[in-house]
Amino acid sequence: MSLGSNLDLLTVTFYGTAIALILIGLYAALVKRSLIKILIGLSIVDSGINLLLVSIGYLKGGTAPIFSPAVIDKNPAMVDPVPQALVLTAIVIGFAVTAVALALVIRLYRHHKTVNIDEIKNLKW
């Protein structure tokens, strides 16, 4: 495996995508006026951070951290399982936060009949 030559490309691809996702999400959360779009932005930030964490745990040439019958005797190099477990937790918590936030948006829509934060007076910044 001659990954050494295009290692920089891989770094740029993974870290670059993750950081770009974080920035896109933050932009959407700060600029957009619809509550649904703000929530979509926050979800995109979530995905970007998860991708960043998983790519930190990657090991060049490493296999998935599973001792399946095919690899258990060969003792291969494995990627770091700790970030993967952390990201599993983070995804679930992200889901819970998104669900509660959407419920609050529904509640706001019931009260104000709009999801535009310009029209909901006490949500302006």
């Binding site: 290692l7 950081i19 974080i22 920035l23 700060l30």
Partner: peptide, 26 residues
């Protein structure tokens, strides 16, 4: 917002360019 995001991007890139992708750090 764009200026703020540029600052955030600068520091993120600065930090993560020092962590080599796929390197055995242990």
């Amino acid at each position: 917002v764009l200026i703020l995001l540029a600052v955030v991007a600068y520091y993120l890139v600065d930090v993560f360019s020092q962590i080599k992708f796929g390197e055995n750090r242990f």
